[in-house]
Simulated scan of single mutants.
Amino acid sequence: MAKAFIVGHPVKHSRSPLIHGHWLEAHGLEGSYERIDVAPVDFGDFLKSFPARGFAGGNVTLPHKEAAFTLVQRRTQRAERVGAVNTLWVEDGVLWGDNTDVLGFMAHLDASLGTGWEQDVDTALVLGAGGAARAVVAGLQDRPLKRIFVANRTLSKAEDLVRDLRRHSPVALETSAWEALGRVIPHAQLIVNTTSLGMAGQPPLALDPSRAPPRAAVADIVYVPLQTPLLAAAAAQGLRTVDGLGMLLHQAVSGFQRWFGVTPEVTADLRALIVADIEGKA
């Protein structure tokens, strides 16, 4: 029986066990997927010991993604670009790491906006410069955009992101000061929030989507609440919106396939299951 996990600190609020449990049941597979809380000081020992405990691999969440990047033996090209690992597996005795947040965000963007959405987008604006922003930028770099602006409240972090990722794509990658967002928004046909602003319990994101171009798309990787104030304001302007839940669902697909040998689908039933859990605990 294949076993997988999600490791973090804390990890009790993770919805990944719901996702993978749904797929295990849907495909009639014997297997398990469990939460494991590991403090940062113990994370290195955990990585060495989990195969002997019968686990095929697992997911990594905060605060361990950067440590996992450093400690795995081999990394995919995606993980190398992003500088963080969220998916682990053992292959021929070697511990591998991948970053499926890239796949998750782009798959959800494609599903939400439709194939060929890039034809309407020359310029994208990404808010934030953490690990999620790096995954989003890496995904967007592989599409035929002309420019990607990265804005962060601490400009130096945006500059670090641009420096690290610029060499991977011909798409122009530039920074924007947070105070200068008003000059960038009118040119951005795609705006993506990767910060925690607007999340339940966090300050709101002070951004006015009414200044965005007509038919612009606004995405938010926050999924609690499912409709953030940013998405509500964008919808009120008639803009297309992309919520954060789909990224969580789609990023889980490739890990499940590696551990359990079946490629699952992100279905309406799965989404409804997670939405019900979010609403029940909001």
Rank of each mutant, 00 (worst) to 15 (best):
Q73W: 04
R75W: 12
R75I: 14
R78I: 04
V82F: 03
G83M: 05
N86C: 11
T87W: 04
E91S: 13
D92M: 05
L95G: 07
L95M: 04
D98S: 10
N99A: 07
D101Q: 11
V102F: 02
G104W: 03
F105I: 06
L109K: 00
S112G: 08
T115G: 13
G116E: 12
W117V: 03
E118Q: 15
D120Q: 15
D120E: 15
D122Y: 12
T123K: 07
T123Q: 10
L127Q: 05
G130M: 03
A132C: 08
A133F: 04
A135H: 12
V137D: 11
G139K: 04
D142I: 10
R143N: 03
L145H: 07
V150P: 00
A151R: 06
N152C: 00
N152K: 01
N152E: 00
T154P: 09
L155Q: 13
S156A: 15
K157C: 04
K157T: 13
K157E: 10
R163T: 15
R166Y: 00
H168M: 05
P170V: 11
P170I: 11
A172F: 02
T175A: 02
S176A: 15
S176E: 10
A180I: 09
R183V: 12
Q189T: 02
I191K: 06
I191D: 08
V192Y: 01
N193K: 06
G198Y: 04
P203W: 11
P203C: 10
P204T: 13
P204H: 10
D208V: 01
D208E: 09
D208T: 03
P209S: 09
